[in-house]
Design a binder for these strands. Structure first.
Lengths: 163, 163
DNA sequence: AATGGACTTTGCTATAGTTCAACAATGCTA
DNA sequence: TAGCATTGTTGAACTATAGCAAAGTCCATT
């Protein structure tokens, strides 16, 4: 168990992800910095969600992602040794993570489809529908970054929507 | 083994995916139709690649994706019964597909990052770099659709690039 | 209650990307 | 080899979205 206060980082890009997190309470975001220094939110996670830079964790490469607490947050984490011994010794864990990967793959797939075929406004509506609780908890700025637009443009979309 | 000639469909959206394909020779694309009837390419596959609408295949839901041969194509396929018995009886197959899902998850993740942070031109350059052989084999029209722009705009980017 | 800092809104201009229409090039098929 | 299909190119007008700046709002801390 660890505690992070608002704005604290659980992981910085270019560090090695040494653990996978399970959120007990609070809310975090994962984001990347592009070569212009602009942040892009990849995902949010709240209570009872798993997250982590799996790519870094599993393949032992430097992380691409940053993970930051958006609220005071309490997490549990699995270290690499524990992960590896679970994989070796608990067949159910292998099955469980297989399904986890599979479902994440589906989620990612759907997000790619969405990006290809939806406008910004549609992506915003989809976000509201899919994560109704997050939309209250997370600032617009972060939602805008998640759906791939500027905060100003999101603000404009919202104003347009009211009319 | 089955043979499909150019333009023939291996799978139509709203059908149920009853098999997963392995391409022996040829080239196919998977695409979706948006509600405006516009096609969006999701992926290409050539010799020695696996593909299929896994989401439909595994969760037994109607396919979202269409799969179409871009060249005369020879494939091998695994039926659902065979898949299921492999899962039940061959532990290595479970491990293998777990890694397959994991890697697909990583690939998808990277593509999402790219969509968030790259311009159309950068996505095109990345495509050329990542799939140099595909860029000769697949028409510009389809590449444009894959990176999420119109064929006209791709044509313009290419003209600009020459100078 | 006052101050400062982050977030949101508004309006204006700039740019990336689309749409449409016409034409050119290329590739199939007879 | 001619003829038709499809694909690629070009340019002009249009639309979606970004960028910037200023003002307004919402908190958290003194």
């Amino acid at each position: 168990e660890k505690r992070y206060s608002k704005k604290e980082h659980l992981l910085y890009a270019s560090d090695y992800a040494k653990e996978v997190f399970f959120i007990s309470s609070g809310c975090v975001r994962t984001y990347i910095l592009d070569y212009n220094g602009i942040e892009h939110n990849i995902s949010f996670a709240v209570e009872n969600w798993w997250l982590g830079d799996l790519q870094s964790f599993i393949t032992q490469t430097p992380a691409a992602q940053n993970i930051q607490a958006l609220e005071d947050t309490v997490i549990f984490s699995i270290s690499q040794e524990n992960w590896n011994s679970l994989i070796k010794e608990v067949p159910e864990f292998v099955y469980y993570t297989r399904i986890l990967f599979r479902n994440t793959m589906f989620t990612h797939e759907n997000r790619i489809l969405q990006n290809l075929s939806f406008t910004a406004e549609e992506r915003y509506n989809y976000f509201l529908k899919t994560y109704p609780n997050l939309s209250h908890r997370v600032s617009q700025k972060h939602i805008a970054s998640y759906i791939g637009i500027t905060p100003e443009f999101l603000s404009m979309l919202r104003a347009r929507k009211k009319r």
